[in-house]
């Protein structure tokens, strides 16, 4: 696998990450940031009043909107500053994305079960909405981390 023969000169330059990997890194940062910002706003409200009276819908919509817009802006910036000029995905990118998305979906499946239990015990909408939001964020972040591990380490499909 390795050789003592010299490598062609062009192989020594810095290897940029692929467009897909840059987007994955951005997601792994953006989603936790917007989620933590949301909970930083909502959790203090929970200390002073019952959950049923806490206003959480508007902050959550802002967090979801910021994540959505941030994802689009991140992709645009990533494409604009792509050192290699390539934004298309190859087969390895697609396999890694599928691998990460599978992990994210497994986490979200667990979250769906948790939400179902909350609905069965007639928990307040606050808890149902926030657990669903949290699991969604955890699943997305976990999936992004799995993709980064696959990009940086070994991935055999």
């Amino acid at each position: 696998m390795t050789s003592c023969k010299p490598v062609p000169a062009d192989d020594d330059d810095r290897v940029p990450t692929t467009f897909e990997e840059r987007n994955t890194w951005w997601m792994a940062i953006l989603v936790p940031v917007t989620t933590l910002a949301y909970f930083a706003v909502v959790i203090p409200r929970l200390w002073s009043r019952p959950a049923a009276e806490v206003a959480w819908v508007t902050p959550m919509l802002w967090a979801i909107g910021a994540t959505f817009v941030g994802t689009i802006l991140g992709s645009i910036v990533s494409a604009m500053f792509a050192r290699d000029g390539h934004t298309e995905s190859d087969v390895r990118d697609k396999q890694i994305v599928r691998h990460g998305d599978g992990i994210a979906q497994a986490v979200m499946g667990f979250g769906a079960a948790a939400v179902l239990v909350l609905a069965m015990v007639r928990a307040d909408q606050f808890w149902i909405g926030n657990v669903l939001f949290l699991i969604g964020a955890v699943g997305t972040t976990w999936g992004a981390i799995a993709k980064i591990r696959a990009y940086r380490g070994a991935f055999h499909g």
Binding site: M1, P8, A9, D10, D11, V15, T17, T18, E21, D84, H86, D90, V91, R92, D93, Y151, G153, A154, F155, H156, G157
Partner: peptide
């Protein structure tokens, strides 16, 4: 002295994929 970029272009993948295959970090189809 074919470069990784040249091989990648001829196979239709990114250079990062060629590097990963060379290093044994990715098994191609």
């Amino acid at each position: 002295e074919m470069t990784q970029a040249e091989l990648a272009e001829r196979v239709g993948v990114t250079r990062q994929t060629v590097i990963a295959i060379e290093q044994g970090r990715y098994s191609p189809s």
